[in-house]
């Protein structure tokens, strides 16, 4: 009886989860199908468009030729990698210092990091924009990268990870001739690998998909990231009405992220679970 009850409740909870999953996945399924369907047949009244080979070739051909999609994606890769590398380069030593070194002002700095987590990006937008404009950096990779290189989220995540690391290992390292920076890079970074992996996913997804910040600092199509590029061409009229081509662009832009997530899923989840210690 108890077994039956628990299995029926399990069926119920799975049904709820399935419904949620279908609602989440549906737009993506529709995007993929629409990207494979000729323009004229996408809105024929059916719930899901019906793909054809001809439609697929047409849409992906238009997406790749009418919009400089590869250029956008190259920009996206440069920007995301630069942001991620600099974020880690800054957050690892900061997290290490906040977790393991004692110095005056450490509690205040930690509070500042926590407060930093609470400030949405929209608030400092104007001062940062003005600073970039005055230094002549608008429409450059620097404008896309520099505002993001200090990630309080990464500092906090790594700090939480480092706090549980045994102090005796650090003492051993100091006696073995490690400097504090080499402890951070050669001992803490490898130990924090799961946290670094999950943070990398967060960071790459956030900045690859980011529309807001590129829209603020970029007007030159050559410097556009994928999201901004697609939005720009839709508005500029080149993709107007050609939903199939737009969806093809969307698929091409999303695919690398999905692939990355699937590749790193295990590390991603482990990092989040361990980080909660």
């Amino acid at each position: 009886m108890i077994l039956a009850q628990s299995s029926s409740s399990r069926i119920a909870s799975h049904a709820v989860l399935m419904t949620g999953a279908i609602i989440m996945v549906f737009p993506f399924v529709w995007m993929i199908l629409a990207s494979l369907t000729p323009q004229s047949e996408i809105f024929n009244g059916d719930l899901l468009p019906t793909p054809t080979l001809h439609g697929a070739i047409d849409n992906y051909g238009t997406a790749l030729s009418a919009i400089p999609l590869l250029r956008f994606m190259a920009n996206g890769i440069v920007v995301c990698v630069a942001i991620l590398v600099l974020q880690i380069a800054i957050a690892i030593p900061c997290g290490y210092a906040l977790a393991k070194l004692s110095f005056p002002g450490r509690p205040i700095l930690l509070v500042a990091v926590l407060l930093g987590l609470l400030v949405p990006v929209q608030i400092p937008t104007i001062p940062i924009y003005i600073a970039l404009a005055k230094s002549g950096l608008l429409d450059s990779y620097a404008a896309l990268v520099l505002p993001w290189i200090v990630s309080v989220f990464a500092i906090f995540l790594f700090r939480q990870f480092f706090v549980t690391f045994p102090d005796e290992v650090l003492d051993a390292a100091r006696l073995d001739g490690f400097s504090e920076l080499s402890i951070a890079w050669r001992i803490m970074l490898p130990a924090a690998w799961p946290a670094v992996a999950s943070f990398s996913i967060f960071s790459i997804v956030a900045h690859w998909n980011d529309l807001y910040w590129p829209m603020v600092v970029i007007t030159n199509p050559d410097m556009m990231t994928p999201s901004l590029g697609i939005a720009y061409f839709r508005q500029a009229g080149e993709g107007t009405g050609n939903v199939g081509a737009l969806m093809a662009g969307g698929v091409l832009v999303t695919a690398p992220l999905v692939a990355l997530f699937l590749l790193m899923q295990k590390h991603f989840i482990r990092g989040l679970v361990l980080g909660r210690h």
């Binding site: 005796e168 290992v169 051993a172 390292a173 006696l175 073995d176 001739g177 490898p190």
Partner: peptide, 27 residues
């Protein structure tokens, strides 16, 4: 001087070879 800790304090991500070599490599 060298220190042996109660918890051994080995570097968890390094092999035995690299653990033993660490003080030489760093110096």
């Amino acid at each position: 001087l060298a220190f042996v800790f109660q918890s051994y304090a080995l570097y968890p991500h390094l092999s035995v070879y690299d653990n033993i070599a660490a003080p030489l490599v760093m110096r």
